[in-house]
Design a binder for these strands. Structure first.
Length: 571
RNA sequence: UGGGGCGUAGCCAAGUGGUAAGGCAGCGGAUUUUGAUUCCGCCAUUCGGAGGUUCGAAUCCUCCCGCCCCAGCCA
């Protein structure tokens, strides 16, 4: 596949256009991008957009994408996150090859460049307190005031900076600042901090340093060291670009990268703020970074979302500069699309209702053929056991059904998928009036699901043989938040109390009990499910990745809102 | 009366002076042993608004309106 073909498949966007133009003009021969996570949390679906963009561009243009950890703040970063991030990028389907880097690899060079700026009179050590600095920074509309330490001599600055490095001062005592313009309309240019004193152990450099470069002082130079040609980041860094360029212009860097910004992903009913995600985990709102309700790659993976679905979703939402909120339905569509094609079908009953086939011989068992995938004959068939006692879904029976209810009700005939037509003859209730079982009859002539007399039936329902069924725990997930646009300032108020429903006695086809059973799999008529790591021998646990499209449920819901009748009938 | 961005359908998003792609959602209909899938059809006389330039404007110019980001020794 040529680069041009690859792009037409991926779609165009303004960044790919710029890169294509840079190649066409001869400005670059080899494209180098980078994905630069800070290891202070887990990757989420928003990062997936960035990963697909950066690694995707490298693939399409025959270039290279580096994985570079932006580890300049040891007070927030941990090895656990570094490991998880690498695993997640690989799982998503991308590989950085030999190009694994850390900003901390460049600490010595960055330090040398800081001294270079000092020598050129472009940086100074500031003794002001944090409060003083803030007070002198000015406001959005008023210029700042120069620090009283701004005009120290080169010698004094050098001496102080070296002593900062040597550990002579406590954390926060002094900073190194660029000497730019305290009156700039762009606050990032008002003498930004280059180095701060942090007596903290770093996951990689340990105690080697007690001063650490700021993001601004590290990022562009790291790009330059690695020969990154296109440094792609999100919109909020747009007004850092003049500073990014300033460092590259004033330092003897080995290459001249350029920064481009795109709009980060926002998803309805979802929060992608790292701060909030961290609080969800630490506050116990979810069971961990890989809780299937989390939008983290680890959570999505555990939920059963295939990486192809993430990539397809990202491809479809495009890349632009307008802030936007993508409907989570678009993500679910991508998941269903991939899973519909890939997942084998099995039968499982979530809320079992016992059915006794009165005219089926006691003790008789037979095996019926069921296809594994309706659109893929190569997926083959399997045998499912049928007996006198079965489980069907409680939702597939209604004693007083509304019009257009195609499932089972007293006196009505339906097809048991791959098996027989059955007719409901009697409803068995307990003392409380609860339906506890159904007595039905079957038509032996309809074996396999077709009536020789051409008789039609309106509905087909799934079932599991009671004698063979395996009991399982099934976890049904709903949106973590109740509102399309949760309040990140008070996220707890918008958390969905019903984001997790646990079904403890689902009945599965026996093959689903095996440790190596299919996953993800479609439970027919219900949705796509993935085996969870909490599964124990003989006690499988499944997560619902996403339900099937449910037009009947939608019609029902709408009708119920419109006109809930006394007897439950819906006109 | 600061600086930087962005405004095309309910939601994403193409379009770069020649007469509004595509996807999601929605709505009809066909097929169906998953009310799934698949398939067909419908869904912006109009591009935040108003002027202007032009034979012709979502695209160029002017003014206005709206939304987002920035005052961490976070990234």
């Amino acid at each position: 596949m040529t680069a041009a073909e690859a792009i037409s498949e991926t779609g165009r966007d303004f960044i790919r256009d710029i890169i294509a133009a840079d190649i066409a003009s001869g400005r670059h021969r080899k494209i180098i991008t980078r994905f630069p996570p800070e290891p202070n949390g887990y990757l989420h679906i928003g990062h997936a957009k960035s990963i697909c963009l950066n690694f995707g561009i490298a693939q399409e243009f025959g270039g290279q994408c580096n994985l570079r950890f932006d580890d300049t703040n040891p007070t927030k970063e941990e090895q656990e996150y570094i490991d998880a991030i690498m695993a997640d990028v690989h799982w998503l389907g991308f590989d950085w090859g030999e190009h694994l880097y850390y900003a901390s690899d460049y600490f010595e060079q960055l330090y040398a460049w800081a001294e270079h700026l000092i020598r050129d009179g472009l940086a100074y050590v500031d003794d002001q307190s944090q409060d003083e600095m803030r007070a002198n920074r000015g406001t959005l509309t008023a210029p700042g005031r120069n620090s009283p330490f701004r005009d120290r001599s080169v010698e004094e600055n050098l001496d102080l900076f070296r002593r900062m490095r040597a550990g002579e001062f406590p954390s926060g005592a002094r900073v190194l600042r660029a000497r730019i313009d305290m009156a700039s309309g762009n606050i990032n240019m008002r003498d930004p901090v280059l180095y701060r004193i942090l007596h903290a152990s770093h996951p990689r450099t340990g105690a080697a340093w007690c001063i650490y470069p700021s993001y601004d002082f590290a990022h562009g130079q790291s790009d330059a060291i690695e020969g990154v040609t296109h440094s792609i980041c999100t919109l909020e860094f747009e007004d850092h670009r003049p500073l990014y360029d300033w460092f590259l212009e004033h330092l003897p860097v080995p290459s001249r990268p350029h920064q481009y910004e795109f709009a980060r992903l926002n998803l309805s009913y979802t929060v992608l703020s790292k701060r909030v995600l961290t609080e969800l985990v630490r506050g116990g709102y979810v069971k961990g970074w890989d809780d299937p309700r989390m939008p983290t790659l680890a959570g999505l993976r555990r939920r059963g979302v295939p990486p192809e679905a993430l990539r397809e979703f990202v491809r479809r939402i495009g890349v632009a500069k307008a802030n936007s909120v993508v409907d989570v339905a678009m993500f679910e569509h991508a998941i269903r699309e991939v899973l519909n094609a890939a997942a084998m079908r099995r039968m499982a009953v979530l809320r079992p209702l016992r059915v006794v086939i009165e005219n089926y011989p006691e003790g008789q068992i037979e095996e019926l053929e069921a296809v594994n995938h309706p659109d893929d004959p190569d997926a083959g068939t399997r045998r499912v056991r049928f007996g006198r006692e079965l489980y069907i879904e409680r939702d597939d029976f209604m004693e007083n059904p509304p019009k257009k209810f195609f499932r089972l009700s007293p006196g009505k005939e339906v097809r048991l998928r791959y098996a027989y037509f059955i007719t409901c003859r009697e409803v068995v209730k307990d003392a409380a009036g609860e339906v506890v079982a159904l007595r039905c009859t079957y038509d032996p002539a309809t074996r396999g699901g077709n009536a020789p007399d051409g008789r039609k039936v309106q509905g087909t329902i799934h079932w599991v043989s009671a004698a063979d069924a395996v009991t399982a725990e099934v976890r049904l997930y709903n949106q973590l938040f109740t509102k399309p646009d949760p309040d990140v300032g008070n996220f707890a108020a918008d958390i969905n109390p019903n984001s997790l429903e646990v079904v403890i006695d689902a009945k599965l086809e026996p093959a689903l009990a095996a440790d190596n059973s299919l996953s993800p799999v479609q439970f027919e008529r219900l949705g796509y499910f993935a085996r969870d790591k909490d599964s124990a021998p003989g006690r499988p646990v499944f997560n619902r990745t996403v339900g099937l499209r449910d037009t009947w449920g939608k019609v029902q819901g709408a009708a119920a809102v419109r006109k809930p009748d006394e007897d439950g009938d819906i006109k």
